[in-house]
Design a protein around this nucleic acid. Structure first.
Lengths: 336, 336
DNA sequence: TCTATCTTTGCACACGTTTGTATTTTGCTC
DNA sequence: GAGCAAAATACAAACGTGTGCAAAGATAGA
């Protein structure tokens, strides 16, 4: 096990000062060509690697970006994580991914970790649990660039990338109404998060517009899951007035709904219309194919990264509120 | 925008030396109780956060772990990434996730990045492209703990966590044979990776054992995808001797195969038996439900992390070869 | 040869921590 | 209050790098 070679080791070996080596490695024109080549050759030979801790400590530069998401293994987030990671890599940044598991407490500790490690910037989609945004305020206070995407903190002045959840849910609801569905339920999560609040409002406003009384926005506390979807449908089916359509905020729940429907002999779309947020890898195979609301993951990743990069390079000042909205799209299939 | 508070700022404010503050923050018994409380109070008050760059530069400690995977948005890897991230978090580590996109070049650069940033340890599943393992050798040479999982470099002496690919593929093949299938094709990837080589050998050996001639291990170069699955099945179906069963190394391809089969009127399992590695979120809904080989993601994550942790704490010496094998499981369904 | 300019290198300090050692302060005993 | 041990604090060096400034060396013009 060899010890890592440093700039001083090279300097000693080549009988120059370590500052000269430093300059040589960074192609500073002030250093003579022959010494530079000697340094570079020696460095390559001995597999020299800059110690980023020293560089960052000195405050010269920092190419580390942190990414905070509720889950890594939900396709919406894993797609964005994957795209952001590639984007960052192509621009010379290094991305660290953190997972809150939807817990406020973990999110807070993660933010502290990020501050401790001097990341150059942070991209976040907040946890369902998160009610207080102080921890993100601290980030900005310390001058660390911050961009929210999808699930955002309204009260933190910083760039935000949102999806048109209100409009798209209203549109989905109206589509169901026009197809003749009257008792439309909405399976969603806590309204303390903009995403779910917007969806709920789009849903409710559209029902109101058409004078429909059956309002069933169901705020679930638990994590979206197949089991939860099953349970919710069987619960709804035991109510005095059954729903005749469902808008589901998660593919996981949607799968559960379909399984429970099949088990209970509920026919889709005849007995129950179905629209879901998100899409499945296997969506084409499933019968009936489900009408779904596709979210533009690639666009979100690109815009978010672009905003963060501009903050890092001071093109956008820290603490400036910018809101970008990207558009989701309804893919019409056979489930309603 | 406030500047970050440092240990020296606290010292100046409280009229003590910064070394005393350092000890106070780390609960060193040598520092008086009242000064310690004063320091802690002031630190909390002003949101002091340790500068990990300084700590790590000094070489005292390092709680950063790097994770290298080919893709983040494939369920096998995203599950493992998710579990490892949680595991690491619960033990006080911070995980950075890197994605190679199956490219050797990116993998090499990522390893250099990891060395530059002084990570405490690395967990890797290598890219399909990776033929040379020198870059991982460098890691060990610098004394950085390294654990391989699933896709490993055989020639790097370090702990490895593998799946019993040979046995499980042999078992799957034998199952198909006993069900009466005779022309079994195997859709897989480059044999330069242990995973795919083991599967191929398990497949071939079992065919040989039963004296079957039809051997069709198809090594695909491209990334596994739905489109590729479609193309492969239609290609196979145009051959003089059609396969009557397929073992697929990826759920993506499997979805493509099923779509193409449906389009071309190929009945599963009557005309074509099907077994796939991996499982789908929606696997229960798909008709027919596919017999699949489930890989123990949680177990892999746990064992890998455990090994790495033991290397970091010097319970396992760097450069020691340890091989653990975990068992995949065939979930029998209706597709064969 | 002297001075002026340019090129190249060296010096020293700073970034924020930790830690071994030296120094001061406190508390105790007689 | 002197003496001494124990407790608390201060000092200094180190980790590896980057950079402003000084110094030395080279070149050129007169």
């Amino acid at each position: 096990m060899k010890k890592r070679i440093t700039i001083k080791d090279i300097a000693k070996e080549l009988n120059v000062h370590h500052s000269t080596v430093s300059r040589a490695l960074r192609n500073d024109p002030r250093v003579n060509e022959v010494t530079r080549d000697a340094v570079l050759a020696y460095a390559r030979e001995h597999e020299y690697q800059t110690n980023m801790n020293a560089v960052q400590l000195r405050g010269t530069s920092n190419n580390a970006i942190a990414l905070i998401v509720p889950n890594i293994n939900h396709s919406f987030f894993s797609d964005i994580v994957s795209k952001l990671t590639n984007l960052a890599y192509s621009k010379g940044y290094v991305i660290s991914v953190f997972q809150t598991n939807e817990k406020y407490q973990q999110e807070k500790e993660i933010v502290n970790t990020i501050i401790r490690h001097n990341f150059a910037g942070v991209i976040v989609s907040i946890a369902k649990d998160t009610v207080n945004s102080d921890h993100f305020g601290v980030l900005s206070k310390f001058g660390i660039p911050l961009v929210f995407f999808d699930r955002i903190c309204e009260d933190v002045p910083t760039p935000k990338v949102k999806i048109n959840n209100y409009e798209i849910t209203a549109k989905a609801t109206e589509y169901l109404i026009k197809k003749g569905y009257r008792n439309i339920a909405h399976l969603t999560a806590t309204t303390s998060i903009n995403v779910f609040r917007d969806r709920e409002n789009g849903y409710l406003d559209m029902l109101k517009k058409y004078g429909l009384e059956y309002q069933q926005p169901i705020m679930v506390q638990d994590d979206f899951s197949i089991e939860l979807g099953k349970k919710l449908l069987s619960g709804l089916w035991n109510m005095p007035v059954k729903p005749d359509a469902i808008i589901s905020s998660s593919v996981h729940m949607t799968v559960g709904i379909m399984l429970e429907a099949r088990k209970s002999g509920i026919r889709i779309p005849e007995d129950l219309g179905l629209i879901t947020f998100g899409s499945l890898l296997s969506s084409e195979i499933i019968e009936p194919q489900v009408t779904c609301i596709e979210q533009p993951e690639a666009e979100i990743a690109e815009i978010s990264f672009d905003l963060l990069e501009k903050m890092i390079s001071h093109e956008i000042e820290i603490g400036k509120s910018i809101e970008k909205t990207v558009e989701a799209e309804i893919i019409f299939k056979k489930s309603c």
